Amino acid sequence: MDWNRIEGNWKQVKGKIKEQWGQLTDDELDEIAGNRDQLEGKIQERYGIERDRVRRDIDDWYNRQTWNW
């Protein structure tokens, strides 16, 4: 997975993140700014999911996306 592309296109990706993890706020997403570790931590905190599952969920989400860049 090339997470650097996510970081570089964070403004476009935020909407897709919000669709999947709607409990994350815009302020939190702005704070995360594409940092995967911070995204994992916020999802874990907000949804009460263990870290390993969050990682798998993010990988699954990423692989389902059709990127237009």
Rank of each mutant, 00 (worst) to 15 (best):
Q65V: 02
G48D: 01
N63R: 09
R56S: 07
R46G: 05
N63M: 07
Y47L: 02
Q20E: 12
E19R: 06
A33D: 14
Q44K: 09
N35K: 13
I43E: 00
Q65N: 13
E40K: 04
R53G: 01
W10A: 05
R51P: 07
W61A: 01
R55V: 09
G41N: 12
K18L: 10
W61K: 01
E31D: 15
G41C: 00
Q44N: 04
K14E: 15
K42A: 03
Q20F: 02
L39V: 11
Q38K: 13
W67F: 15
G15Y: 11
D60N: 06
T25A: 05
W67L: 14
D26K: 03
G34I: 04
N68H: 08
T66Q: 14
W69P: 14
N4P: 02
A33K: 13
K42N: 07
W21N: 01
A33H: 09
R55K: 08
E50R: 05
D27Q: 12
D57I: 02
E50M: 05
N68W: 08
W21V: 05
K11P: 05
D27S: 10
T25E: 03
N9Y: 10
E45H: 12
Y62C: 04
E7P: 08
W69T: 06
Q65D: 01
W61E: 00
D52S: 11
Q12N: 14
K18F: 12
W69I: 12
E40P: 02
D30R: 13
K16T: 10
K18Y: 02
Q12R: 15
K18I: 03
I58N: 00
M1S: 06
I32M: 09
M1A: 04
I43M: 02
G48M: 05
Q38C: 05
G48R: 07
D60K: 09
D52N: 10
K16A: 13
Q12E: 08
D59V: 02
Q65G: 06
G48V: 05
Q44S: 10
N63S: 06
Q12K: 13
R5Y: 13
I32W: 05
D37C: 03
I17S: 03
I32N: 01
Q23V: 00
M1T: 03
E31M: 11
L29V: 05
L39F: 04
D30N: 15
D37G: 07
N68V: 14
R46H: 04
K14W: 09
V13M: 13
E50H: 13
E31W: 14
E19C: 02
K16Q: 08
Q65H: 05
L29T: 01
G34F: 12
L29W: 11
D59G: 04
I17T: 10
G34P: 04
E7K: 15
Q38P: 01
M1Y: 07
L39D: 05
R46Q: 13
R46D: 02
I6L: 09
I49K: 08
G22C: 06
D30Y: 10
V54K: 07
